[in-house]
Design a protein around this nucleic acid. Structure first.
Lengths: 222, 222
DNA sequence: TAGATTGTTAATCGATTAACAATC
DNA sequence: TAGATTGTTAATCGATTAACAATC
């Protein structure tokens, strides 16, 4: 087995890496051979030292005065994020959010390959959404085991989220990407990542309330 | 004008409040009159002191030995997040993610009311998505000003995100909820909140890579 | 009363930022 | 060489957690 060193880094670092990756890919498209932390930091209004620390996590080393090789930095970030080859995933809940994720073309570039969708609703079962079959939920455990599926995506209403997660865990799924606004219990060893839009929305509307008055009119600058 | 005290709190606190809110609403449905920080903390595996600090931000005060009144805590959290009455919003980009957001029924409970969608694509313009009209992008500035729209939602591909944001800023939009994976520049005073799925996905796939070997097989526990 | 819980202050922890020698 | 940038160590900052008196 190859010596895969995956350094433990903070969640904050992990969330900045995709930002760098996007930028680097567009810089590489423009033919830029090398890039410095200072350049990257400027684009995001980050501290250059922070960028350097973040990049250190990937194992790529730079050259003084020159910076990092754009192309090999891209490769290292993708490797570090597990995006160099896509993981197969099952999605449960073929509602609006489920459909949006199934329709998203670029997930394969982000290490994700949604191979099938599941739903309890018998009217949805049998249909195809963006070329993926919608299967009855009861078929999930057997199929997940047979196909060695590691990632489960939860896009069901909050009240069904826990039972779907329990089913996924039994089916041997190792990582759950949850979009339902419910507190989920998972056993040790299973990874749970919440992608809840309402959390992001809360930051937005709270900040907006601080800028506007509570009557909706603008407050004076002070 | 009423004395609306909006305390400045950390982003982390702000993101936990919607979690508490969801829980409290379901507890209220079950008829629970009071709830303690300990109870809330248990549900999420948080520190009770953290929950207490978070709730302090809302201005609600509890009672020793009894805890917080469920119903009035709900009201205070919603008030604090700006979710007591919904802000009108424009959405730009009627693709998959745009459609999913337009189809999301509960946004009014989260302070958001998407009143119209915009797109550059003339084939999409004129259609209706979940009962909202799709308008040509050029109409956004005038309409936004006329209707005093404060929130703009960006669900266009990365390469168009900056120009859409610039248009929104000119149109007087105060807060931008961005779903495009692009680094955006905004003038001072405008709020930018990124809701990028790829960041959340990065955390998931990196963690999964640590659990699995790089050949996809499970690693031994050590 | 006894004891669970609040509110608050202090200690700890971790992430960000500053400083600086090494290097190309 | 001169100076921009890396890599790394130290200082700062802010959030989380611990401790504890007040209270119902």
């Amino acid at each position: 087995m190859s010596q895969l060193k995956v350094r433990v880094v903070s969640r904050s670092t992990l969330k900045r890496l995709p930002l760098y990756l996007h930028l680097l890919e567009s810089l590489a498209d423009q033919g830029l051979q090398n890039v410095s932390c200072t350049q990257i930091a400027e684009k995001f209004d980050f501290d250059p030292t922070q960028v350097r620390k973040d990049l250190e996590a990937t194992g790529e080393v730079g050259t003084a005065r020159i910076g990092f090789r754009t192309v090999s930095l891209i490769v290292k970030i993708k490797e570090f994020l597990g995006w160099n080859n896509a993981h197969d995933a099952f999605l449960v809940g073929a509602g609006n959010m489920g459909k949006a994720l199934l329709g998203y073309k670029d997930f394969d570039r982000y290490g994700l390959n949604i191979v099938a969708a599941f739903d309890k609703d018998t009217r949805k079962v049998g249909s195809r959404i963006f070329n993926r079959e919608v299967l009855p939920l009861v078929k999930l455990p057997n199929l997940a085991k047979r196909m060695h599926i590691n990632i489960g995506i939860v896009t069901v209403p909050a009240e069904y989220a826990q039972e779907v997660v329990d089913l996924m865990v039994v089916a041997g799924i190792k990582a759950i990407w949850n979009f339902a606004p419910a507190p989920l219990k998972i056993p040790e060893g299973v990874i749970l990542e919440n992608a809840r839009l309402t959390q992001s929305l809360a930051v937005l509307t709270n900040n907006l309330t601080k800028v506007l008055g509570d009557d909706g009119k603008d407050l004076e600058k002070n």
